[in-house]
Design a protein around this nucleic acid. Structure first.
Length: 910
RNA sequence: AGGCUCGUAGCUCAGUUGGUUAGAGCGCCACCUUGACACGGUGGAGGUCUGGGGUUCGAGUCCCCACGAGCCUACCA
C-alpha cells in the first residue's frame, strides 16, 4: 500500500486531531498506585478570566517538556491543571459586563452578584483550559482544580481558623494601601512604585498669637486639611524656640502643635514637616508616638470627606488644585519646586494608591517565613525538605525579601472570593472565628450573627495550591504519593506573591516543602525589547501564532531560546526557523515512507522491516560489521541523548533543543540520509535491508527524543510508522536511552573520527568545486593521498560515499604524495585531495585564499609555540592541556607546510 | 537609597568550575529547480568579546574603575 503524505508539513491539519485524542484517551491520567519514581507538578493556575498569552505559552511549554520527558523515562507522572478565581480581576470583568447591560452590581446585591459571576464562569471560564488542551499539554484533566471550588474553600477555612487560633492571623486598625478605584485594601506587593515628576509646595503656617510663621514643604497639599501637627528635628536650632508653640492651620483655622521628632530630616525642604497621621505612613507613626488625632479627610473613593470643610466632595486631585490656588490667594504659598519621587500605583487599576486608616485582617509573617527561609538557604543536591531555586540569583532575591518580610494584609473588600470565616454578634459584639457558620453567639447566645463582609486575598488560596489540590488535609493516595511536588515552574514576577507564600504555608501546614525545586522562567519581550503588554497592544497572541506556524514550532522556538535567566525576544524569523525544522523532519519521514513503499513493492514485508524488535536491535551489521556510517550516527545519537538528558535535568531547555536540532538536521538529514540513499536501493537485498533497519531505528529514536519538544508532529509520524499493535501514543513510549555498546570500549572516538574525516574529505572537495566555480553538473575525478595506511583503508571503504557526495566521477586513493602540478588541492594534516582540471585557474583568488589561511595558521602556531616554550606554563598547566596543544601544533605545522608549498607552486606557475 | 543582572558577528542570543584558530539561528554573498524537503541543498564572508586597569603560565570567562541598558526591593515629607 502506497502511503499518501503531503509534501510540506501542515500542522493545522494534524494538531487538533491529536489534541483531542490525548484528552479523550485519558493518556495522562495519573495513577498513584503505579510503580516508578514520582514526578509531580502542579500548574500555576491561570486566571479564569484570562486567555492564553505568550508568557503562559512559554511556561506551559517548559512544564510540558519536562512532564513528557519524565513520563517517557518511566516516572509516575502527574501534571495537575486548574485555574484561579482571581478576585479583583474577575470581579472587575463581571462588573464591567453588568455595567454594559446597564446594571449596577451594587444594586444587584451580593448574593445575586455572586450568582452572576458563577454563571459567567460556567459560560466563559473554560477558555484558557480549552486553549491548554488545544496546545496539547499532557495534563491529567480528571484532576482539574479551581481555587474557589467548595473543596478548596473548606481547606481555606481550615487554614484560616488554625492560623487565627495560633495567633498568626489578627485584625487591626492601621494605615493601609487603599485603591480608590478598586475600593479595596491592597497588600504591599500589589502596589508598584514608579518614579514620577511632581512638585514640592512650600506652605507658610502662621504661629498662633505671634507674627512668626513656619514654612513646611509637601508633595501632597490636599492632605494638609488633616494635619494635626508640625514637626521639626529636636536638634534643629532654627526651630528650637518654636517647639511647644502652636500654628494656625491655614484654610481650616485649626490650631495644631509644633512638635519635635527625630524622624525629621533637617536637610530636606525647610526642615519642618506637616504631620497628617491619617494620610501618610510616616506621619501615622509620628502621630502614635505623640498621641496626635487622626483626621481622615478623604472618603474611600478618593473624594474629600466631610472633615475637609469646604472641600468636601471634591476629587483628591481637584482638591489639590483648589487648595494651592486658595493658599496662593492668601499669600501663604512660598514657592513651588519640581520634585521627583516614587509614587504607589495600584497594579490593577493603575491609579495612585491612597494610604488610608482602616480595620483589616493581617497575617503575621516573621514566624512563617523562618522555616521557608531555612528550606531555601540550606538547599543542596539531595537534601530532604529543602527548596532549590533556579536560576541562582533569584534565590538571593528570595532570601532578602523573606528576611525583611512584613505582615500581609489578607482581607479584601470584594464580593468574589473566599469569605472570611469570622462572625460578629449583634448582641455583644463578640467575634467568632470558625470553619462552619455558627448558629448562635458563644458568649451571649444571641442568634443575631453577621459574617465579616470581606473576602481573602486571592493569593491566600493560591498559597495552599500544591497541597489543597491533592486532597489535604485528608491523607489521600494522591497526597501521599505526589506531595511534595517535584518542581514548580513559574514566572519570577510572582516569586513573592506566590512562591514564597506557598513555601511558608506548605511547610507550616504539612511539615514538608511544597516543591523540591522552583524554576523561574524568563519573560517574553517584544522585538523592541519591551515587556509584552495587552493594554499597549504589544502582546503577541500565541493562539494566532500557533495557527500560523504550528504549535510545535512555537514550542520548539520558545524552548530553543529559553536560557535560564535570559529574557526572550520572539520574532517571526525565529518562529519561521522552527517551522522549517518541523518541515525538515516531516520530509525526512517522507523519505522513509517512500523507501518503505519501495521495499514493499519489491516484496519485502513490513513485519521484517519495522517490527518493534528491529528498533531495539539496531545498529545491524552487514557482512560481519556495522557500517562505519552507522557506527558514527549511533554514536552521535548516544551523545545527543546524553546531552539532552543532562540539559533538561538542569532546565537548560535551549541547549536540549539545540542538540536535538543539530542531531536531526545536521547529522541525520545532511549526512546520514544522504550517505545511505544508494544503499537502500542496493541490488543486494541484505545490504538494503540492513541500511533500512538502521535508518528506521535511528529515526524512531530521534522522534522520541524530539517528542517532548514537538509532541504533535512526532505523534503523527510515529503513528504512520509501524508500531506495536497495542501502542497508543509515542508519549507513552520510552525515551531513547544511550546505546552504550557504541560509546564504551574506547573504540567509538576512533570510529567517529574516521567518519568525520570522510566528512572533511567531502567538504574539501566541495569547497574546491565551489571556489573554482566548476560546473556543478559535471562529475570530475579526484585524487586523495594520505601517508597513513589506516586512513587510506578507511577512505577506500568509504569511497562510494565520497564519490557520490562530492559529485565525482572517480576517486583514486594513493600512497604517494600528489603531483604538485594542475588542478586544485586542499590539505589537512591527515590527507591531501586534488581535483584535476584543465581550465584556466584563477590563480590570484587561490593565492589570496592561501595567504589568508597561512596568516591565520601562523598566528595560531606562534601563540602555541610561545606558550609551550614557557617553562612556567609547562610546570603549571595540566598535562592534558599541554599534550592537546602539542598535538594540535604538530598538525598545524604540517598544514602550514603544505599551504606554503602550494603557494610556492602557484607563484612558480604565474 | 540598597541589592542584582546584562553589554560577544548586521540582528537576536548561547558560551557550566579560566585552558587548544569564540558558537548557533536569522540575515548577507556565490552557485544549484540533484527523485524527502526552495519551509530546500552546497560552499563562503563576517566578531577579538563596551572601554580602561589588575590577578594568572593563560581571561569573553575572576577582581577593580568608567560608560551604557535593564530588573527587584524601599514610608524621606
Amino acid at each position: 500500500m502506497a502511503r499518501e503524505i503531503a509534501k510540506a508539513y501542515e500542522p493545522q491539519q494534524i494538531e487538533p486531531r491529536w489534541a483531542e485524542y490525548w484528552v479523550k484517551q485519558e493518556l495522562f491520567k495519573a495513577d498513584p498506585s503505579a510503580p516508578g519514581p514520582v514526578f509531580s507538578i502542579v500548574i500555576p493556575p491561570p486566571n479564569v478570566t484570562g486567555s492564553l498569552h505568550i508568557g503562559h505559552m512559554l511556561e506551559h511549554t517548559e512544564i510540558d517538556i519536562l512532564t513528557r520527558w519524565h513520563r517517557m523515562r518511566g516516572y509516575n507522572t502527574l501534571y495537575l491543571p486548574g485555574t484561579d478565581h482571581a478576585g479583583i480581576s474577575t470581579q472587575r470583568v463581571v462588573v464591567k459586563q453588568l455595567m454594559d447591560q446597564g446594571i449596577d452590581y451594587q444594586k444587584l446585591g451580593r448574593e445575586e452578584f455572586e450568582k452572576r459571576v458563577w454563571a459567567w464562569k460556567a459560560e466563559a471560564g473554560s477558555q484558557i483550559t480549552e486553549q491548554m488542551r488545544g496546545i496539547g499539554e499532557s495534563c491529567d484533566w480528571s484532576r482539574e482544580r479551581f481555587t474557589l471550588s467548595p473543596e478548596m474553600s473548606r481547606v481555606v477555612r481550615k487554614v484560616f481558623v488554625q492560623l487565627y487560633n495560633e495567633g498568626l492571623i489578627y485584625r487591626e486598625t492601621r494605615l493601609v494601601n487603599w485603591c480608590p478605584v478598586c475600593l479595596t485594601v491592597l497588600s504591599d506587593l500589589e502596589v508598584n512604585h514608579e518614579e514620577r515628576l511632581g512638585h514640592l509646595w512650600y506652605i507658610r503656617y502662621p504661629v498662633a498669637g505671634t507674627e512668626e510663621s513656619v514654612v513646611v514643604a509637601t508633595t501632597r497639599p490636599e492632605t494638609m486639611l488633616g494635619d494635626t501637627a508640625v514637626a521639626v528635628n529636636p536638634e534643629d536650632e532654627r526651630y528650637s524656640g518654636l517647639v511647644g508653640k502652636r500654628v494656625v492651620l491655614p484654610l481650616m483655622n485649626r490650631e495644631i502643635p509644633i512638635i519635635a521628632d527625630s524622624m525629621v530630616d533637617r536637610e530636606f525642604g525647610t526642615g519642618a514637616v506637616k504631620i497628617t497621621p491619617a494620610h501618610d505612613p510616616n506621619d501615622f507613626e509620628v502621630g502614635k508616638r505623640h498621641g496626635l488625632a487622626e483626621i481622615d479627610v478623604m472618603r474611600d473613593d478618593g473624594r474629600m470627606s466631610g472633615a475637609a470643610g469646604t472641600y468636601a466632595g471634591l476629587d483628591r486631585f481637584e482638591a489639590r488644585k483648589k487648595i494651592v490656588e486658595d493658599l496662593k490667594a492668601l499669600g501663604l504659598l512660598e514657592k513651588v519646586t519640581d520634585h521627583t519621587h516614587a509614587i504607589g500605583i495600584c497594579e490593577r487599576s493603575k491609579t495612585i494608591v491612597e494610604p488610608r486608616i482602616s480595620t483589616q485582617w493581617f497575617c503575621a509573617m516573621k514566624g512563617l517565613a523562618a522555616p521557608a527561609l531555612r528550606a531555601v538557604r540550606e538547599w543542596e543536591p539531595g537534601k530532604e525538605n529543602t527548596i532549590q531555586i533556579v536560576p541562582d540569583n533569584r534565590r538571593q532575591e528570595f532570601l532578602n525579601w523573606l528576611d525583611n518580610i512584613r505582615d500581609w494584609t489578607i482581607s479584601r473588600q470584594l464580593w468574589w472570593g473566599h469569605r472570611i470565616p469570622a462572625w460578629y454578634c449583634g448582641g455583644c459584639e463578640e467575634m467568632i472565628v470558625a470553619e462552619e457558620a455558627p448558629t448562635r453567639c458563644v458568649k451571649c447566645g444571641s442568634g443575631k450573627l453577621r459574617q465579616d463582609p470581606d473576602v481573602l486575598d486571592t493569593w491566600f488560596s493560591s498559597g495552599l495550591w500544591p497541597f489543597s489540590t491533592l486532597g489535604w488535609p485528608e491523607k489521600t493516595a494522591d497526597f501521599e504519593k505526589y506531595y511534595p511536588t517535584s518542581l514548580l515552574i513559574t514566572g519570577y514576577d510572582i516569586l513573592f506573591f506566590w512562591v514564597a507564600r506557598m513555601a511558608m504555608l506548605g511547610i507550616h501546614f504539612t511539615g514538608k516543602v511544597p516543591f523540591r525545586a522552583v524554576y523561574l522562567h524568563s519573560l517574553v519581550r517584544t522585538g523592541s525589547g519591551e515587556k509584552m503588554s495587552k493594554s499597549k497592544g504589544t502582546g503577541l497572541d500565541p493562539v494566532a501564532l500557533n495557527q500560523q506556524y504550528g504549535t510545535d514550532a512555537m514550542r520548539f522556538c520558545l524552548a530553543s531560546m529559553a536560557a535560564p535567566g535570559t529574557d526572550i525576544v520572539l520574532s517571526d524569523d525565529r518562529l519561521a526557523g522552527a517551522r522549517n525544522f518541523a518541515n525538515k523532519i516531516w520530509n525526512a519521514a517522507r523519505f522513509l515512507f517512500l523507501n518503505l513503499d519501495k521495499f514493499e513493492q519489491r516484496g519485502t514485508g513490513i513485519e521484517e522491516l519495522a517490527s518493534p524488535g528491529v528498533r531495539s536491535g539496531a545498529p545491524y551489521a552487514f557482512e560481519g560489521s556495522v557500517p562505519l556510517v552507522d557506527q558514527w550516527l549511533y554514536s552521535r545519537l548516544t551523545i545527543t541523548i546524553e546531552t539532552v538528558n543532562e540539559a533538561l535535568k538542569n532546565y537548560r531547555f535551549h541547549e536540549a533543543a539545540q542538540d536535538v536540532y543539530q542531531f536531526f538536521w545536521g547529522d541525520f538529514c545532511d549526512w546520514y540520509i544522504e550517505w545511505v540513499k544508494p544503499e537502500l536501493q542496493s541490488e543486494n537485498r541484505e545490504r538494503a535491508v540492513v541500511a533500512w533497519k538502521n535508518l528506521f531505528a535511528a529515526f524512531n529514536d530521534a522522534l522520541r527524543l524530539l517528542h517532548p519538544f514537538m509532541p504533535f508532529l512526532t505523534e503523527e509520524l510515529w503513528h504512520q510508522l509501524p508500531q506495536a499493535a497495542e501502542a497508543k501514543s509515542i508519549a507513552l513510549d520510552p525515551f531513547p536511552t544511550p546505546r552504550t555498546h557504541w560509546t564504551t570500549g574506547g573504540k567509538e572516538i576512533g570510529l567517529m573520527g574516521q567518519f568525520q574525516m570522510m566528512q572533511e574529505v567531502v567538504t574539501a572537495l566541495r569547497n574546491i568545486r565551489a571556489e573554482m566555480k566548476l560546473d556543478p553538473k559535471k562529475k570530475m575525478s579526484a585524487e586523495l593521498y594520505s601517508f597513513d595506511g589506516v586512513t587510506r583503508d578507511a577512505m577506500e571503504r568509504s569511497k562510494d560515499g565520497i564519490v557520490r557526495l562530492a559529485s565525482l566521477s572517480l576517486l583514486t586513493i594513493s600512497s604517494k604524495p600528489l603531483e604538485q602540478a594542475g588542478g586544485a588541492v586542499r590539505s589537512t594534516a591527515a590527507f591531501d585531495v586534488r581535483i584535476a582540471y584543465s581550465d584556466a585557474v584563477d590563480g590570484e583568488a587561490e593565492k589570496t585564499r592561501l595567504k589568508k589561511e597561512i596568516e591565520g595558521l601562523q598566528k595560531a602556531i606562534s601563540s602555541k609555540e610561545s606558550q609551550l616554550g614557557n617553562e612556567t606554563f609547562r610546570s603549571r598547566a595540566p598535562e592534558k592541556i599541554i599534550r592537546g596543544l602539542e598535538a594540535t601544533l604538530a598538525d598545524q605545522r604540517i598544514e602550514l607546510q603544505k599551504l606554503r608549498e602550494r603557494l610556492a607552486e602557484l607563484e612558480r606557475h604565474r
